[in-house]
Write a protein that binds this DNA or RNA. Sequence first.
DNA 1: TATGAATGAGATTTCATTCAT
DNA 2: TATGAATGAAATCTCATTCAT
Lengths: 231, 231, 231, 231
Amino acid sequence: MSEAEARPAPRRARDAERTRADILAVAQAEFAEHGLSGARVDAIAARTHTTKRMIYYYFGSKEGLYLAVLERAYGAIRHAEQALDLAALPAETAMRRLVEFTFDYDEANPDFVRLVSIENIHRARFIGQSPDLRAVNATALDTLGAILARGQAEGVFRTDLEPLDVHMLISAFCIFRVANRHTFGRLFEMDLSAAPLRSRHRRVIADAVVALIASSARRCADQNSVTPQAG
Amino acid sequence: MSEAEARPAPRRARDAERTRADILAVAQAEFAEHGLSGARVDAIAARTHTTKRMIYYYFGSKEGLYLAVLERAYGAIRHAEQALDLAALPAETAMRRLVEFTFDYDEANPDFVRLVSIENIHRARFIGQSPDLRAVNATALDTLGAILARGQAEGVFRTDLEPLDVHMLISAFCIFRVANRHTFGRLFEMDLSAAPLRSRHRRVIADAVVALIASSARRCADQNSVTPQAG
Amino acid sequence: MSEAEARPAPRRARDAERTRADILAVAQAEFAEHGLSGARVDAIAARTHTTKRMIYYYFGSKEGLYLAVLERAYGAIRHAEQALDLAALPAETAMRRLVEFTFDYDEANPDFVRLVSIENIHRARFIGQSPDLRAVNATALDTLGAILARGQAEGVFRTDLEPLDVHMLISAFCIFRVANRHTFGRLFEMDLSAAPLRSRHRRVIADAVVALIASSARRCADQNSVTPQAG
Amino acid sequence: MSEAEARPAPRRARDAERTRADILAVAQAEFAEHGLSGARVDAIAARTHTTKRMIYYYFGSKEGLYLAVLERAYGAIRHAEQALDLAALPAETAMRRLVEFTFDYDEANPDFVRLVSIENIHRARFIGQSPDLRAVNATALDTLGAILARGQAEGVFRTDLEPLDVHMLISAFCIFRVANRHTFGRLFEMDLSAAPLRSRHRRVIADAVVALIASSARRCADQNSVTPQAG
DNA sequence: TATGAATGAGATTTCATTCAT
DNA sequence: TATGAATGAAATCTCATTCAT
């Protein structure tokens, strides 16, 4: 998948890698669309360049494939997150940037968001089986914790919040907007994925986070205001 | 929906009503646990006092039953919400009260939260079929809109936020905490349902909402601070 | 879980004989354990130092491998039997010795006994394909026939029994004890492989054989009595 | 199956009973022929008046069906055995009668014998799951124990043998003759199911048993001699 | 209204065997 | 000779739904 790979991979092995990746990509779409029990191995195979048999050859079972998909999806977001360079920015700016990254990532990757919902329906049974997944995700809290500590050191953030609290507020909003847009949309008859609403919400969550963490530390400074939908 | 609905219940109809309710309760648990495709009609029938045939008699199909469960679950939360009497309270207090109600309701009703996730996996296909559901939910925004308007009239709330924005922030946090507690718990090795974390988060979200809506309206007033976990 | 797994380092051509023997030993265990249809070529390959492909290279097919295992197992018992030197002993002693050898061999080689059962389930279809197997087994009756003839010449054995009859009585008991110990053990709640029962049964079958073949020839001579289990 | 059945059985229930019995009979033949893993559910369904689906409806799984077949087969032999009335006969005659019954039953029911072999290949894993099977088989030793005790009381049987020992000798021979006739037949080029050999062996095992149990108790009485195959 | 029996269609999984290098 | 990848065919099993009474 990545270009930085061992050169002398035997031809066959390369094909194998491609086959695996092919299956994984298709499977991700199918699982994200229909869930674990709703997904059809046949459907995955049909959209692949290989056969159903190969799925079992590489992943052992439907559940094994699902777990591999999960690892792939979580790996991708943490990988992207790591690519952000927030250390050089002022704490508040870094925090806004992190919120916006999360917002944009979830918006751009609804499949990831759906997979997370699905895994929760299964009470994270599969994540529990994968130590890799735990390791890869630990970095998320570290990144946020560093910003928080910096802001507290600068005296601009309140000191009584845990990284987890803030991570939860951010994740909750960003994931919820994508995961629950369908019920929200139907119930309140609006389109949460429409551009104007999206950009307003992007500011709402950034504002909310900054308002929360700065709340007792700041001296009535002006904030970026949230502009309501034009019209 | 069903024809078997009557006021001054004849014996038979009473039983029928009880049978329906029995099926619905069992079905809610099964659907919440396993999702729409993961749920088994056989399993529901087995835990019911009636037979599988009755499920089809009353609800027509698995999907019909699922929709009825959805209506039941949404009806219950909106009903509870209406019972709150927030009109007499100062706007900020009312807002806090509303946040806390939502928080507590979701915490106490994980099955409801799971059903919402599940329905979103299905892109709200079933909610869309039920006009009742839309009607019953419209009230949610009305309640919140009233508080917001009051606060704005009092001059303590900023004026550039829509009721939807605030509702989303509240819902996102409260639902996310319950819906995604399994992946969160596994990934960060903590128990989101534990009491100390729960009460801290209850304050975090109330603080965040108040901080957001009050942000440009107030003058450095003190806020209820979030007290970190004792010990 | 998945089949796509790393295999240990390949061997060189000179080890061909060793490879064959390796495969055969593993295959014998697998076939004895699970039967012909229950055995898995994959399982055999996994426990071998070579690959599945080699099994086909050397033995052509699963059935070919099974036949080779059969030949190996039958060869071993007849070989051991030949090593006995019974010609020098008095007929009755020789007979007891032969019975005890059979008893001990079956007890020590449950895999052989299981393979015989399995081959009978297949109505000896494979044994029929191997002239070698027939040749190697003819010796069994010869050995027994010689003892019988000697005893009859000595006047201590009755003359109306065929070697086959006696061979069957011996084989039946010795093989049955091992082959059917599981159903017997469960049904009558005892452990046929336990030492005390084993040594008693060793004497029971020797007694029974001697009692039978001596029955009309002898005059109330004392016999080795069967001592019941001590305690 | 038996005529002496409850009259007011509902029509449907009767059909169900017939369907079950139909499946069981066909399954017994298939399992006896091919073993547990060799048997095909499809093949069973095809020879039944119902469908494959019904097999799962009634028996849950291939293994469940196999266990039911086992219970049926063991039930039948114990039932037949109970029908023997041996109490009125002199002990030795009763013993001969019992041996002959066992011999004849196994000869007439090779499927039963094969099932026993097959279950032993599975290390009696399934018998172990069925308390019924254990209960039903306990009677076998009781019957034999009663005869033995009677003979010992009469002073014509030796007193140092356990019922189990004798049961084993009888079972071993009778079952072995049927179970292992294929390897025996091929290896020694004879037909163990041919009538003359059969009747000779019927006497051999009866002689052997009587010779064993009477061995130290008797006063050189004449025995029924075994007549070798005519010709 | 109620129910035990039945089922067609399709799901997942298995397995001996062969291919390409 | 050796091997990782691949596979067609067929196996077991599942499930929402309907039938007959």
